[in-house]
Nucleic acid binder design. Sequence first.
DNA 1: TGAAGAACTGAACACTTATTCAGAGCGCGT
DNA 2: ACGCGCTCTGAATAAGTGTTCAGTTCTTCA
Lengths: 224, 224
Amino acid sequence: MVYRRTHQVVKRLAARRSAILAAARDAAAESGMAAVQIAPVAVRANVAAGTVYRYFPSKADLISELIAEVSRDELAAIRRAADAAPGPSSAMAAAVSTVALHVLSQRKLAWGILAEPVDVDVTASRLASRREITSEIAARIDAAVRAGHLPAQDTQLAATALLGALHEALVGPLAPDNLDDQAKLRDTVQSVTLLALRAVGVMDARARGLVVQAVLPAKALVGA
Amino acid sequence: MVYRRTHQVVKRLAARRSAILAAARDAAAESGMAAVQIAPVAVRANVAAGTVYRYFPSKADLISELIAEVSRDELAAIRRAADAAPGPSSAMAAAVSTVALHVLSQRKLAWGILAEPVDVDVTASRLASRREITSEIAARIDAAVRAGHLPAQDTQLAATALLGALHEALVGPLAPDNLDDQAKLRDTVQSVTLLALRAVGVMDARARGLVVQAVLPAKALVGA
DNA sequence: TGAAGAACTGAACACTTATTCAGAGCGCGT
DNA sequence: ACGCGCTCTGAATAAGTGTTCAGTTCTTCA
């Protein structure tokens, strides 16, 4: 073989791959998953349509990677927020608020990743994404249960229900739509976090306290 | 005009329309929304593909009507269950359990109606469907709040979150899958109903009582 | 019974996009 | 500098389905 990839080329190829993914992400964030079509994404990434296929075997793979990427970011944010909390209940509250805030600050993207109809099959990828997130939340609920702060329960089911509640309330078609207003946005996050905490068995009074503690730092993180 | 529809013909036309809708519903219940394609539905209904278009202007209209029909049935069931309950909190619990049981006994259909990707735009219809159901649930929560059984809250948001929780926990890809077992099914319905009641602020002890009262009659109704 | 219109049929059409691939361009090692 | 092979291009292709419509069958009513 007289040809070997030089470091520079390797970097360029990686950059291109990232550019394509980023283009897909931007398209999804701007106009939803329906806008993630090969030709427009290629244009955004400054490559030809065929080139996309040198980096992703199919559209399904491209979107799957997009979902995985967003999911990784989300998971990391949840862990960061929860780990920074002083105790298991706070951690749980922080995790929930973080999801709520992320979802609200990127509603179109969140909807695309989670549930928007796509013309290729990405169920496996979505499944994996949800499994990761719900497992993380379930672990936090579990910790609170073990600490004696919550009644015993099926934590995986609870986590799934919690995420369903957040998503439907915040990104679904019935989500409130006037969330440009910062105060209204914070209110909404607080309300859904409160619902979520009570759902797993936190007493109303205590839940209200946790909510306030959780939402403020989470907001700071989202801004960053 | 020398031609007027005779009563018999009117009836036959209506029957055909129903047959087409029923065929679509069966297809959706058996194999999901993806199976609701014009040609197969026409075969099921014993008509030619073209005939479908004499009853529905487009596939989108067909599916929209399907969604509306299922939604009407669901709403009626909720009202029946809630109205039969002795008080506002019981009514709320009954409404929630009813949704949970219906969803579980027709999971594929529910998933198709609610969230499964479809190749035509049915967002408006889904939106209307959800609005009806959430409004009904919101009204029940509201009644409980007015009766002093629950803390004041944004009941529309709460209802939306509740339904999201039920749907995700019961029909989403992370839903438990071994629900053929009757006992396991009842457990799951009880668990999610409990979560839902606590979420809106019912005390844990009281919620457990309401759940038991609500699930048994709801099961009987579903069987009917 | 026959003419006129309504309803039905199903093969052909239309349209959208993912995917392919032959040729052009470029980077590597000699 | 040069040839080889990797990378890129973008127009052509492919495939799945919703939709149409000319022809056929059925229904009405004089």
